[in-house]
Design a protein around this nucleic acid. Structure first.
Length: 651
RNA sequence: GGUCCGAUAGCUCAGUCGGUAGAGCAAAUGGCUUUUAACCAUUGGGUCCCUGGUUCGAGUCCAGGUCGGAUCACCA
């Protein structure tokens, strides 16, 4: 691997060359251009960051007074000198301030703005002085002559420290009048566009640091600056942490590198420990470790951290994602839903200040008006109730057997029919288009699964004449269902497993996307929930829920299975499915069975996808916009080419 | 992996029917010096993503590729 030259990393252009030149000139004036520190003052009570000064009561008070004076003036009229002078006396009496920050405006003229990333504060320098520069020679030697010279060499984006006094301008903005100027660091690259920031989403994510600089210029993308997105994220997480702490939970950290990847159905990242000579896996879920801790007596325990899954990327999936997972002894799934609701409402309120989140683009992309997600009310539906409720939304009016109701979902024959219909529908055409072209769909239905003795040509003919196939052949559905099941249907160990699988498939395919408002879906098939207890009233149903918001799964919780024997058997089933080719089936964890054998209290647990929740609260449609450094393909450097030797001809 | 869309100056973007490569910002030089989104004047700045094709002539049309975005499938 060749080591790239500095010029390949920071490609020279007129901008960088100009900055190089100004840096050299600055070095002549100040010596070291990358000094080690700058001490800020504390007139505002703490360290004077720009934000602290902006928010300092006295400063706000004087700005308010000036605003009042200005309100009494006509357009373009300057405030009376005596009144302004009085305010400036008050400001000057506050004493000398020393502040530091990045130049957010080009440096032509007397005024520039400095930013600390959050706020901007105006800074003023006068050519006639007194304007000194502070040399970076370790002794802070003062050079009375060259302050203005240094001021003129500054570039947009440079970091400087200034010492001076506060004053207010005619337009009513409190500013610092610079008396001493110290150079702190150079921006060798030009700043992002001051109006648009970085527009290309790829570059925003790759060069997040520059994207964040644009935030300090108040550049917004879809309503929030990038910095605000991550401030909300931080507040949400702190809020959740505080809520859990206040309710007696203890925060722990469990292994990220594990000898077994289990606790969820997912493909792990694999790595290798040289000294131990064993493979290790990046964890796909902390679940089994946290439940070991409930065995050990941590009755309420949580972890907020990353999980890693070696699967596809999408607007909803990053290879590493943050999950809050917690467990509470002696609680069941219903208690957990109550608690989850409280926790989320509290955290959402702390993060955004309100319980409603506005989302401007609907999941299905059909409606332009924003959706308001209301965290004030969480609905609870069984999976079957949800299917019946939302089936109509699909406009599946042409079901040959009529309209579905909940009894269909108990009847294996009806379920098989629905499964056939659904699988073909998915195969044929994008979901959103499918219902525009029911005739075509039905035709494809026939073509793919033509029972014996049916004539292809006849079907083509009927289609040409645009006669509804369902009308022509009222019994088509049963014929096809039968044919499909004979030849194409997946095999299930028993009828209950088949029913469960089909109900889940119907739910995932057709219903999820319509769950916009917070909705707990309950009654998951036990067969797909190997770590969950059965419902005491129905052995085929797991005491499990998933929370859906805006069509996304945001949380997943259940009454935790704590019977070591049953857990062992469920793992064995999973291993059998693994043998059968299901790479995501769970792996048996012997030590976990041992832990359960010590006796685990009945408990409820939940995992909450933090990234997705942040997406909802910040109106972002891509998970990559709520992760500071999302996974990206490595940047490709262009192979070295001959230097640009094309002589430019004049004339 | 499928489908659709995109890539032009450091940045944000125009570029008509295929006929000399454009603007604003940023930069340089000079002026101005209590400005408020971007003061005034002048100047420099281009591998139009890559490769090939059609054509007298390609930023523009065609094919293939690279990278990215949206969306679908798997997954949380």
């Amino acid at each position: 691997m060749s080591i790239p030259a500095l010029e390949e990393i920071i490609e020279p252009n007129d901008q960088t060359e100009a900055r190089k030149a100004s840096l050299a000139a600055i070095a002549d004036l100040v010596g070291n251009v990358y000094p080690n520190k700058f001490a800020r003052t504390n007139i505002s009570g703490g360290e004077d960051t720009l934000t602290a000064l902006k928010q300092f009561d006295k400063v706000a008070e004087i700005e308010a007074k000036m605003a009042e004076i200005k309100a009494s003036l006509s357009e373009g009229e300057r405030p009376p000198a005596d009144k302004k002078d009085a305010l400036n006396e008050e400001l000057k009496a506050l004493g000398t301030v020393r502040i530091a920050g990045r130049l957010t405006t080009p440096t032509r003229g007397n005024f520039v703005h400095l930013t600390d990333g959050m706020s901007k504060l105006q800074v003023y320098a006068n050519k006639k002085g007194p304007l000194a520069l502070v040399k970076n020679d370790g002794a802070d030697t003062i050079d009375e002559e060259n302050g203005w010279a240094l001021w003129q060499l500054l570039d947009h984006g440079d970091l400087i420290g200034v010492e001076g006094y506060l004053f207010i301008t005619n337009t009513g903005e409190v500013s610092v009048h610079v008396e001493k100027l110290q150079f702190l660091a150079k921006a060798m690259l030009p700043m992002p566009d001051k109006m648009h920031g970085i527009a290309d989403p790829e570059l925003r994510r790759r060069y997040r640091y520059a994207d964040l600089i644009a935030s300090s210029l108040q550049v917004e993308h879809d309503g929030l600056t990038t910095r605000e997105v991550f401030e909300r994220r931080a507040k949400l997480i702190t809020g959740m942490r505080r809520f859990l702490d206040d309710h007696g939970y203890i925060e722990v950290e469990t292994p990220m590198l594990t000898p077994k990847a289990t606790g969820a159905a997912a493909t792990p990242f694999e790595t290798y420990h040289n000294a131990l000579d064993i493979p290790l896996y990046a964890r796909i879920a902390p679940e089994l470790y946290l439940k070991r801790l409930t065995v050990g007596g941590f009755e309420k325990v949580y972890e907020i951290n990353r999980n890693f899954r070696n699967e596809g990327l999408s607007h909803k999936h990053n290879p590493e994602f943050t999950m809050l997972e917690f467990y509470c002894a002696y609680m069941d799934v219903n208690g957990m839903m109550d608690f989850c609701e409280e926790l989320m409402q509290d955290a959402v309120l702390k993060s955004t200040g309100q319980l409603q989140a506005s989302i401007t683009k609907e999941y299905a992309g059909t409606d332009e008006s924003p959706i308001i997600v209301d965290f004030g009310m969480f609905e609870r539906l069984t999976m079957k109730q949800a299917i019946v409720r939302y089936w109509d939304k699909l406009g599946s009016r042409n079901m040959s057997r009529g309209t579905i109701d909940e009894s269909w979902l108990e009847n294996v024959s009806q379920l098989r029919y629905l499964a056939t219909y659904m699988r073909l529908k998915k195969e044929v055409i994008l979901l959103s288009d499918a219902f525009e072209t029911d005739g075509g769909l039905e035709k494809k239905f026939f073509m793919n699964f033509l029972p014996k003795g049916w004539n292809r040509d006849r079907i083509e003919e009927i289609d040409k004449e645009r006669i509804s196939l369902a009308e022509e052949f009222p019994s088509w559905a049963d014929e096809l269902t039968f044919s499909y099941l004979e030849n194409h249907a997946p095999k299930y160990p028993d009828v209950e497993a088949e029913k469960g699988a089909i109900v889940l498939e119907l739910f995932e395919s057709f219903v999820e996307r319509f769950l916009i408002q917070p909705t707990f879906i309950t009654d998951y098939p036990k067969s797909i929930s190997p770590l969950s207890k059965a419902d005491p009233r129905n052995p085929n149903v797991a005491e499990r829920f998933e929370l859906f918001i805006n069509g996304m799964e945001v949380a997943n919780g259940f009454s935790e299975l704590n019977d070591p024997k049953e857990q062992y058997e469920r793992f064995v089933d999973q291993m059998a499915q693994r043998e059968g080719g299901d790479e995501e089936a769970m792996v048996l964890d012997e030590d976990y069975i041992r832990a359960l054998s010590y006796g685990m209290p009945p408990a409820a647990g939940i995992g909450i996808g933090i990234d997705r929740l942040v997406m909802l609260l910040t109106n972002k449609h891509s998970i990559r916009d709520v992760i500071l450094f999302p996974h990206m393909r490595p940047e490709k450097r262009e192979g070295e080419k001959g230097s640009e030797g094309e002589g430019e001809k004049e004339v």
